[in-house]
């Protein structure tokens, strides 16, 4: 069992203990049909402390954060917020089900770009995501996909090769550093993971 730490505090603030397993969150979830464990199942696992099952689920990487579950929960559980907390925990611990690695790489490439420029550089995002994705699974088709889209975007003036940069890039780097430090401190705030419990 994990020691009660910042994760437990965070999900408690999002009212996990109020979940009565009605399943309404899963009924309205747009990604429910492709998830291995729909949101109410994740809530059940988190609620009873089976965190390892939750962080290993594919569904935390499939969730698109549409907030439908949170908006509809009869018990005012912030279901989408708890999905975020589980994903953030998985991220800190480096856990990710193999089929979902591409989604994780996409998020990584996105944040890299924001950290460096303060804003998203779409060219850099796509290039990094495609190359890292390719190195993770060697799927050539996915590497080349969308490359046909670029000329069509350029034609429409919808493609800026060099994205914008924020004027305050030093501050942005400090914001990233501070937030990552807090997250790292929280990660140490736990006993090591216990395998598949719950």
């Amino acid at each position: 069992m994990r020691k009660a730490g910042s994760f437990d505090k965070a999900v408690s603030a999002l009212r996990i203990e109020r979940c009565y397993q009605c399943g309404k969150c899963s009924a309205g979830c747009p990604m429910g049909s492709v998830m291995d464990a729909p949101p109410h199942r994740i809530m059940q696992w988190v609620g009873r402390g089976a965190i390892d099952r939750a962080v290993n689920a594919e569904s935390i990487w499939l969730c698109v954060s549409c907030q439908t579950c949170t908006a509809r929960c009869p018990q005012t559980v912030d279901t989408a917020g708890i999905m975020d907390e589980v994903r953030a925990l998985a991220w800190r611990e480096g856990v990710c089900s193999p089929a979902m690695v591409r989604t994780k790489l996409f998020l990584e490439a996105f944040l890299d770009s924001v950290r460096r420029h303060g804003r998203l550089n779409e060219t850099e995002l796509i290039a990094k995501y495609k190359i890292r994705g390719f190195l993770s699974d060697y799927k050539m088709a996915l590497l080349l996909k969308d490359s046909m889209l670029a000329p069509r975007l350029i034609k429409r003036g919808k493609f800026r090769l060099f994205g914008g940069k924020s004027g305050d890039r030093d501050v942005i780097k400090r914001i990233f550093d501070k937030c990552e430090k807090v997250a790292a401190a929280e990660a140490n705030d736990k006993t090591p993971k216990e395998a598949h419990h719950g």
Binding site: D84, V114, G118, L120, D168, F176
Partner: peptide, 24 residues
């Protein structure tokens, strides 16, 4: 000098970072 809100990427992996970027 606006900064990216971090979109789904930030709140997916570090909710504090997400709030901080918007707070800025």
């Amino acid at each position: 000098g606006w900064v990216c809100c971090g979109a789904s990427a930030a709140h997916s992996v570090n909710p504090l970072l997400s709030k901080s970027l918007s707070a800025r």
